[in-house]
């Protein structure tokens, strides 16, 4: 039972914040007897009641669920983090430790397998059955959350043109949100970025330009990371059009910016990406 985990964690929070049991159970949140049973992990608790108990000790629901020692944390959170970690470090081993529901096994395994490959390699590596499963998930969802966005971000290049069009239309309709760094590949922006990169790869330069403009419109002044990735995408588009000098200049500026900001993991992520993409786009 999950409550046997959460009760003691709640107790740790309460004690380290210096709240008494009386204060924690205030405002009709619970009786002291109930609280004491919960803290010992002896009783189930409803979501609403837990929310009130947490409020009394100034801890948000998110923070409680984020405790590291929790065995039962959300698999999708883990997966998103492990994918991000693999791209930042080049080490994909953590992915094999993420457990997932059986229903999504095929797509999760497919994404895990191609995470460190270049776009062209991804398209060749994914099997027909996998592409079908990916397509199915993208088509079936009415609103793209982190899960679908992650799938699009990592496999856009392998999706059929009609599915990509459908995805673009859906993303354009829904409101965009972001701002959880490890979930960044799961944002609408990243999904759209990957779809635009796919257009660059298909040499549909006008379509790619339209998408980049659309993405620019969704950004607020403080979305600097997104602005920088958009510049990186412009460099790729230039390269695909044979504007090698412009592309190299933009790439150098992106790297210089990440360096002056002293952000080693982002420098590593970007260098790894360009190392794969430059030879593929530059050949023609």
């Amino acid at each position: 039972m999950l409550e046997s985990e959460f009760g003691p964690i709640y107790r740790d929070f309460r004690v380290s914040k210096g709240f008494s049991m009386r204060e924690a159970s205030d405002n009709k949140a619970a009786s002291i007897q109930f609280l004491s049973q919960f803290e010992r992990g002896n009783t189930r608790i409803g979501f609403v009641r837990l929310g009130r108990l947490l409020e009394n000790i100034h801890v948000s629901m998110e923070e409680l669920l984020a405790v590291r020692s929790l065995r039962s944390s959300n698999w999708l959170d883990w997966w998103a983090f492990a994918l991000d970690y693999a791209q930042r470090t080049g080490d994909a081993r953590m992915l094999s430790h993420v457990l997932f529901p059986e229903r999504v096994e095929r797509v999760v395994r497919a994404v895990n397998r191609v995470i460190l490959l270049s776009p062209l390699q991804r398209r060749n590596e994914l099997t027909r059955v996998e592409k079908f499963a990916l397509t199915n998930i993208v088509n079936r969802s009415q609103h793209y959350g982190v899960f679908v966005n992650l799938i699009i971000t990592h496999t856009a290049i392998a999706l059929p043109a009609s599915v990509r069009r459908h995805a673009i239309a859906t993303l354009d309709r829904q409101s965009w949100w972001d701002d959880v760094l490890y979930l960044r590949p799961g944002t609408s922006f990243s999904a759209m970025w990957a779809l635009a990169e796919a257009e660059v790869y298909m040499h549909n330069s006008n379509k790619a330009k339209d998408l980049m403009q659309l993405m620019g419109q969704h950004l607020s002044p403080s979305d600097l990371y997104e602005r920088l990735t958009l510049l990186a995408l412009e460099a790729e588009a230039d390269l695909a059009q044979g504007l090698t000098q412009e592309a190299d200049k933009k790439r150098a500026d992106v790297i210089a910016t990440l360096r002056v900001l002293d952000d080693h993991s982002e420098v590593r992520r970007y260098l790894a990406h360009t190392k794969l993409v430059w030879p593929e786009l530059g050949v023609k």
């Binding site: 409550e3 409803g46 979501f47 944390s73 959300n74 698999w75 529901p101 959350g145």
Partner: peptide, 18 residues
């Protein structure tokens, strides 16, 4: 719904806690 049921349901949906 109890906390544990909500959490197991969210595993299936699939959606992050955030």
């Amino acid at each position: 719904l109890s906390l544990s049921s909500v959490i197991s349901l969210l595993q299936e949906v699939p959606v992050t806690m955030h």
